[in-house]
Write a protein that binds this DNA or RNA. Structure first.
Lengths: 234, 234
DNA sequence: CGTGTTCTTGATTGTCTTCAAACAGAGTGG
DNA sequence: CCACTCTGTTTGAAGACAATCAAGAACACG
């Protein structure tokens, strides 16, 4: 966690590659994509680098092209609380974009990451000119909203076990597959509103119940979906 | 909780009044508002009436014009969990609008309520034609997203007191004013991820601390903002 | 192969939930 | 207008659950 990332020369080719790789731009025609690429700047961040920090008045949309970005909040006790993990195609900054607000969170690359950035004014222009982009953005925001509200519902559950089970079901999309946790267990614990110790114990409990098995540090296989659903809420 | 609401004849005047009263349409020019009003239908709901219920494939945007709508989810134990309370200007259905999904919640009028409804296809057309509307919608969704993510952060706090304090600060916008709770205390308890008993005790604790006073059933006055902030997170 | 971090395990304390009952307020009908 | 009822809220006591503190084990790193 150290040096700020630096932006690059505008080379269009790189930007076009960035734009074409991102879902929200996928529905655009080729010439429209070029319009977007013209106002896009690609930036790179190495593992551990901070993409942006609180109090910076960022009027920029950041879209993850490759790699991963961890969005977290620093509590007054010094503990980090992960808000969200951004994988390729995900974006941040939409709040700062449409509402005059400074963000209060840190964004840190967890690996070598490429991002596309578009300034507020440029994006506003684009949305005005490209209705398809407007709809794609609305779509993406609606999706995010749904996730966030679902997570709030999950977190309102007092007991840790159903909360965890519900999270795992979301992650696996209710399939009996193997899922990779998107963050470390201590981050996940904070994300789920519990301590790392509790998370460890609850996972163990699910293993004992025969609902899941764990492989390595971040792999979880859902063995019996029904058993997981039995402890999950709703 | 009973009879379904009925929609009305399309009379434009009524619809225009509905459209002009809603923030997301406020930035539109008059002729644009008329375009919106043409595809809007106003519906009314009496206190206790269900506006929509789960499993109904609703591809409709509902905007509250007057009154109030309570959005809640029915858990398998039969308990209602309030997701959100919609006041004039607020809207629901944006998820069903942009993503092919059926909603799983109930929407119930808590008082005599007028809503504007716009169908998915009509709204899509409007967004394509009116960039200003697209931006207004993006703005509103971004705002909602911010609220939802903030609430998720709040709910991840294990201790009930700071969770409640944080909620009250949000409600009062960090002002030492009198606030009216948007829902009953038992609903609020579920919303905050605790039992009604705990909420009652924690409120009492805040009163004892000299942070707040209560008046009647839904009125809370923040006496000493600093004391409330002291127990709040972040 | 060591070193640091992450994760797990154990014992204890504290807090919240649960269950039960009393109380208050709003609405209703006599 | 008052008694009555129903729902919502508060209070109390007991038990369950998760947080905390402390230490050890597993893993990733150089």
């Amino acid at each position: 966690m150290a040096a700020e990332i630096e932006s690059h020369q505008h080379s269009l080719a790189r930007e076009l590659e960035c734009v074409s790789g991102v879902p929200i731009f996928q529905q655009l025609a080729h010439n429209q994509m070029i319009s977007v690429a013209e106002v896009t700047r690609a930036i790179h961040a190495q593992k551990g680098q901070i993409v942006f920090r609180p109090d910076a008045v960022s009027q920029t949309l950041y879209i993850v092209n490759t790699g991963q970005v961890r969005l977290y909040h620093l509590a007054d006790d010094g503990k980090e609380r992960v808000l969200r993990v951004l994988n390729p195609g995900d974006f941040i900054g939409e709040i700062a974009l449409f509402t005059d607000e400074i963000h209060s969170d840190y964004a840190e690359a967890t690996q070598t990451t490429e991002l596309c950035t578009i300034s507020r004014t440029d994006l506003t222009q684009l949305v005005r000119r490209l209705p398809t982009l407007a709809l794609a953005l609305l779509n993406a925001l609606a999706q995010r909203l749904k996730t966030a509200e679902h997570q709030a519902t999950l977190l309102a559950i007092p007991d840790a076990l159903p909360r965890l089970a519900g999270y795992l079901l979301d992650l696996s999309q209710s399939q009996a597959t193997t899922v990779t946790l998107p963050m470390s267990k201590q981050d996940l614990a904070a994300y789920l509103g519990m301590t790392p110790e509790s998370l460890s114990r609850k996972l163990k409990q699910l293993v004992t119940l025969g609902a899941i098995t764990t492989h390595g540090r971040r792999e979880i296989t859902i063995v019996t979906l029904a058993k997981l659903q039995a402890v999950a809420p709703q």
